[in-house]
C-alpha cells in the first residue's frame, strides 16, 4: 500500500504573537494509506480537530506540509477548493450545517459546487443517500422534518456525494443511541468495503475504533504518541491510560487476568477473541 496523504512536520499555532498563543499540533508526522480504514483517537484538546482540518486545507500549516498524492496541497493556494473535493470532511454534529429546502438539494450542494452536470449530480445524490442508509422517499422532504439520526445521515451523504478519495469523519456517532450508532457504523463500514476508498474516523471511544478500523493513530498533547494495528496499540494499554484514554472493557478484563497470572494475550479487544482465548485455555486445562 502506498500513502495517499502524508503529513510532514506539521505545526499549527493559534493566535501567534498574542498572549493566547498555543500550538494545537506540534511537529506531527503521519501517513494515511490508500484504501485503509484509519482510526484517529485522542481526548478533547489533543489536537485531532486541528489536524483533520489541515488534511483538506481548511487550515493552513504554520509550518510543515501536507502532501496529497505527491503534491503539497498548498502548492497553488487558488486550487485549494479542489483539495476539499478530493478529501471530504464530515464535521462533528454535521446535522447543524443543513440549510436547503429539500434533502435532495442539500446533498447536491457539494456536487454543484464542483460544477458537475445535472445528470451526474442526480446519480451522485442518489448513490450517496443509499450509502448513508436513507431511502429515496426522503429526497423531496425538508431536512428539518427528519429525526436527529436521519439528519446526520443526510449531512454525511452531502460529503459522500462529492465522491472524495479520502472520507474523514469527526465523531460520526456522537450523541446517537446504541442502535443508531451500530447501524451508522455498519453503513460506514459498508461504504469503505464497497467503494474501496480511504476512510479516516476520529473518535474518543476506544471500543468503537477497536471494532472498526485497520489501524489506529493515537494523539495526545498536540502530537502522535502511537500508531499501529489495534492489537499493537492495545498492547500498550497502560500508556493509553496514562494519556487519559480509555481502553476497551474487554482489554481491561484481559489485562487484569494476565496480572493475576492467567496465560492470556492482554491486548485482545473484542469479546469474541477473549472468549476464544479463554475457551482454548480451559480446553488445555482439561
Amino acid at each position: 500500500m502506498k500513502p495517499i496523504i502524508r503529513v510532514e512536520n506539521l505545526t499549527h499555532t493559534y493566535g501567534e504573537n498574542t498572549p493566547f498563543c498555543r500550538s494545537a499540533v506540534k511537529d506531527v508526522n503521519m501517513e494515511i494509506m490508500e484504501g485503509e480504514f484509519l482510526g484517529v483517537i485522542g481526548h478533547t484538546g489533543s489536537g485531532k480537530s486541528t489536524l483533520i482540518q489541515h488534511l483538506n486545507g481548511l487550515l493552513r500549516p504554520t509550518s510543515g506540509r501536507i502532501l496529497l498524492g505527491d503534491r503539497d496541497i498548498w502548492e497553488d493556494p487558488k486550487k485549494i477548493r479542489d483539495v476539499r473535493f478530493r478529501v471530504g470532511l464530515v464535521f462533528q454534529y454535521p446535522e447543524y450545517q443543513l440549510f436547503e429546502e429539500t434533502v435532495y438539494k442539500d446533498v447536491a450542494f457539494g456536487p454543484k459546487n464542483m460544477g458537475l452536470d445535472e445528470k451526474e449530480i442526480d446519480r451522485r445524490v442518489r448513490a450517496a443517500l443509499a450509502f448513508s442508509g436513507l431511502g429515496e422517499e426522503l429526497l423531496e422532504k425538508s431536512p428539518f422534518d427528519l429525526s436527529g439520526g436521519q439528519k446526520r445521515r443526510v449531512a454525511i451523504a452531502g460529503v459522500i456525494a462529492m465522491e472524495p478519495e479520502v472520507l474523514i469523519l469527526d465523531e460520526p456517532s456522537a450523541g446517537l443511541d446504541p442502535a443508531g450508532r451500530r447501524s451508522l457504523l455498519e453503513n460506514i463500514r459498508a461504504y469503505h468495503r464497497e467503494k474501496g476508498t480511504t476512510v479516516v474516523m476520529v473518535s474518543h471511544s476506544m471500543d468503537e475504533v477497536a471494532e472498526n478500523v485497520d489501524r489506529i493513530v493515537v494523539l495526545a498533547n498536540a502530537g502522535v504518541v502511537m500508531s499501529g494495528a489495534p492489537h499493537e496499540v492495545f498492547s500498550r494499554a497502560q500508556e493509553l491510560m496514562d494519556v487519559g484514554l480509555n481502553v476497551p472493557q474487554v482489554t481491561q478484563v484481559a489485562m487484569e487476568l494476565k496480572r493475576r497470572g492467567v496465560d492470556i494475550d492482554p491486548a485482545v479487544y473484542t469479546v469474541a477473541d477473549l472468549r476464544a482465548g479463554l475457551a482454548a485455555l480451559k480446553g488445555g486445562n482439561r
Binding site: F91, Y96, F99
Partner: peptide, 28 residues
Amino acid sequence: SAQKARGADFESGNLLQRARALVPILVP
C-alpha cells in the same frame, strides 16, 4: 468551515453572488 468543506466559496464573485453564498451560513 463545514460549508467550505463542501466547496462553498465566500471569496469570489460579484456582490449578489457573495450575498447568495451567505445563505448556507445564515440558515443554519
